[in-house]
Design a protein around this nucleic acid. Sequence first.
DNA 1: AGACGGGACTTGACCGGTACAGAAAACTGG
DNA 2: CCAGTTTTCTGTACCGGTCAAGTCCCGTCT
Lengths: 360, 360
Amino acid sequence: MDKVTLKTIADRVGVSRMTVSNAFARPDQLSDAMRERVLAVADELGYTGPDPAARALARGATGAVGVLLTDSLGIAFADVFATAFLAAVADALADHGLALTLLTPPRTAGVIPSRDVALDGAIVYACGPLSEDVGWLKRRRLPAVFVDQQPVAGGAHANVDDHGGARAAAQHLLDLGHRRIAILTVGSGVLTGVVADPWGQTITYSAEQRLAGWFEALSAAGVVPTVAVEPFRPDQAAYDGARQLLELTDRPTALLCYSDAFAASAMRAAAELGLRVPDDVSVVGYDDSAVAVAVRPTLTTVRQDVNAKARAAVHALTSLIAAGPGVSSGNAEHVLLPTQLIVRDSTAPPKAPRVARRNP
Amino acid sequence: MDKVTLKTIADRVGVSRMTVSNAFARPDQLSDAMRERVLAVADELGYTGPDPAARALARGATGAVGVLLTDSLGIAFADVFATAFLAAVADALADHGLALTLLTPPRTAGVIPSRDVALDGAIVYACGPLSEDVGWLKRRRLPAVFVDQQPVAGGAHANVDDHGGARAAAQHLLDLGHRRIAILTVGSGVLTGVVADPWGQTITYSAEQRLAGWFEALSAAGVVPTVAVEPFRPDQAAYDGARQLLELTDRPTALLCYSDAFAASAMRAAAELGLRVPDDVSVVGYDDSAVAVAVRPTLTTVRQDVNAKARAAVHALTSLIAAGPGVSSGNAEHVLLPTQLIVRDSTAPPKAPRVARRNP
DNA sequence: AGACGGGACTTGACCGGTACAGAAAACTGG
DNA sequence: CCAGTTTTCTGTACCGGTCAAGTCCCGTCT
């Protein structure tokens, strides 16, 4: 049996191709009787509906938007929060009848998904700005929204107030009376463990913003934190980094962590060293992901609303798509979502052995 | 500036459209000099390469394959193992230069991703067989591979030996001397907690197979397990189910769990009740996901190799795609991957208070 | 010198639809 | 009954490429 197309059906029914097309795409353009007749024949012939590829070409819309995740997806998927975000995006897109295409970084020479896959738009999530894939998306002039990304002129953004959130987290520890505070954050992996200059190691905009927020609060209080950076492998690397911090002679009484997963690893390290949380050491996470409440004690953390973030990104994108091409700068949406400090059981005032006693 | 197409460039260079097309898609069809010239002009005009949608129509290949996840993606993404599988699939597809499109269940009336998105093939993962989306994929005659799915004639499958894995897990407990064994598995959610007939509650092929495996080993030893089923929410629901099992007057000495996440919740429930694992109760997980080793004590579990599963599925799919249409049945691949029991610290012989003492 | 072979480019058809402007038929209303 | 609308359907021109089969030209072998 040959392939069934509009023409096959049209000939069979005895109408023009266009009428058949309308039966599927524009019911108001023909009589109900005719529509029924066409649909019946189509069904009988095993026609599934207009070919998506052809329709995409003719209409100029594909019904799919690309999502560019961190360079390696293995890493992205290992992160609870990134995963949750992806799910939320897929969900939000579904409301607009859009599917989500994962733009894997090019592997086979010759095929570059971010260049070769038909898309209506793209969401760029936490990629380095020099990512080749981002370059392709830009060259294609595809409507794009950047999430957790260094703002660039004329781009639509959906960011979270990481700076403020981190500052609040640090302030919380200061308010509890902590003065020996360490930071466990994520880095490129070139240098690991305790580093003198963490700024040279940041890989993502988020990491940078959080670091800035922590430092802002701590500096204002005259506290100089010890900083350990580890590559993004919450299980092992973060554990090692935390352990290194907790074995310092001048052991910190509190830890600010890049994520809840990092914090959970830190808590494991603490337990391994016989330290109790929060009595011996306070731990603060980030994200308020599922692990924050799964872990014991439950984690004090900074909440960011994944769903809101996803919805904001999708909304910005669909606006761009609807606006059509040519409307480059000026009206690009730039959302900044709030964060909120959630105090749970992993933070407490420091015990006062060597710390200067509060003045009475 | 008008849209730049092959024609724009062709006119500018003074050659035919085809030559320009070849410059991009088939370098061996023209002289290097000409190719350079064409590419230079294309670059100058800001041409990004052949339009993906048009190419998809002309070539009959889109470079994207769809993945149909469990009905709700929220649920799918909440599961560590499903997520890991998705990542592995994306990774395996990338090797073939294919992108992965998430087929969200239809939300907006009118748009049905599994019908309306251009795709080269599809992977169906753990969906109910009566899923509408699967129906659409079939009607489209799209090459499809079914993963963790009840085998159907003429379909390509990549399954895991869940039956054997579960049997091994149960046998392990029997070998340790356990006789009061309970099962904590996943169900539709219609009934929850301890149920008399778990079979009516299974929702996925995997759940069914595991149940069958456990029962096979236990029945052979004359052991009748108590079974609790809970909907797929490892955090809360699984915790409740485990708690219910552990508070039975005739408390089981061992728990067989549907997944590592379920097992982790069970361990939390045990801890909450003051029971030690494995001294008071042994716990067995399933999947050997990241949580199996993150949890203390580390989890005895049944390993299945996600990457192998993903690779098998992708391999089967790419074969189908390469074979082209028309080769329906007979040669459909049907892979069954092995499982392996991994014994760690969460299982031990039962203490012998009420159990008959071993003969000396 | 003439036939042959192959590299470099061109031609025309087709992929399977959709948009838009019109034509024919049916429906108003004065 | 005829002009003025609607409704319903049809033609034609793309959408932006790729494919398969030429055409042309030039070097080479005999």
